[in-house]
Design a protein around this nucleic acid. Sequence first.
DNA 1: GCAAATTAATGATTTATTCAAG
DNA 2: CTTGAATAAATCATTAATTTGC
Lengths: 183, 183
Amino acid sequence: MPQVPSTRWCPTPEQLMILEEMYRTGVRTPNASQIQQITSHLSYYGKIEGKNVFYWFQNHKARERQKLRRRLSKQQQPNMQPLQGAGGLDEQRSEGLDLLRKLEIECPPQGEEGSSSTSASSGTSLRCSCEWMKMVDPSFLEGTPPCCGISTPRTLELFPTTSTGLKDECSTSKSSSCSASTS
Amino acid sequence: MPQVPSTRWCPTPEQLMILEEMYRTGVRTPNASQIQQITSHLSYYGKIEGKNVFYWFQNHKARERQKLRRRLSKQQQPNMQPLQGAGGLDEQRSEGLDLLRKLEIECPPQGEEGSSSTSASSGTSLRCSCEWMKMVDPSFLEGTPPCCGISTPRTLELFPTTSTGLKDECSTSKSSSCSASTS
DNA sequence: GCAAATTAATGATTTATTCAAG
DNA sequence: CTTGAATAAATCATTAATTTGC
């Protein structure tokens, strides 16, 4: 008797499909509200919590990366053998990583709706998409009714990125000024 | 005028003192309920959120460790110079880590009150102190009134580890059945 | 054909590294 | 330079595939 309800989340095929499609579309590190949305949408297809979505993206990203890394590491030095961890492959690795970095950039962060023409490509990575913590709210994490009246059609067009009211996050209530005074 | 409420938490001396004392006592990775307790207690001395406590322990642990690592790395090879990242110090590093591991074990996890004699030292690390996520609840994270009427005496004896009712967590009510008709 | 035993995938947690405010 | 905050990498642990012997 499966009295033990199993300890971990087990994505349904639909959920997995959607997640993968989202990843392919470019979603990599969804922020709080995004995770919230994703979770509620996916909860239509089965039990799921916010942290599952969060973890999934973390893991998938990491593993895609490492898979890729492996590939081009081998491609570059097919005769390299892993025995004797002499640790001389730093150069290699570095190169690979750099390349990876580039590939990552190829699919830029989520839809920048506004994308004001001032393409400030001057850098300043500015991560700050991190406040998913807020999202991890037991109130809906535990609850998550199996189907929250979502009328998502079968075709599910990957949630139109309509700003649901929450704008850029990155400045919710915490840092009121990311001005970053250089020095 | 400090219109901008400052972007990050700024521990008061008292808070810091308490945290350090707790660390010294052996607290390293407090779980949800512990963090909750700590937070509310510390909130008496100034504004603080659960995540601050969480991060503080993370960082403090990591930095103590790396400080220590540095120390004994230098002690062992005082003539080693950091220039030229030739990457030959893997051995060293590994050793250092191992030693660190040991030191960690020296001050075992928080008071195991019961400590039933069946000291199942047979292993199976069983981490699972992780469900801090539950804890990160906006309801008290954001709120956190500057002083929640706590009558904590000055002496504050580092919160008696009275099990507040929540026992092991680790198996709340998550996934019930991964039936998932395979195909 | 089927279950116990192994192996491969992958969800979940911890640790190390990095970024940037003060 | 210190350190709070955030992310990426490494690791652990459990579930699903699969192999194997019957």
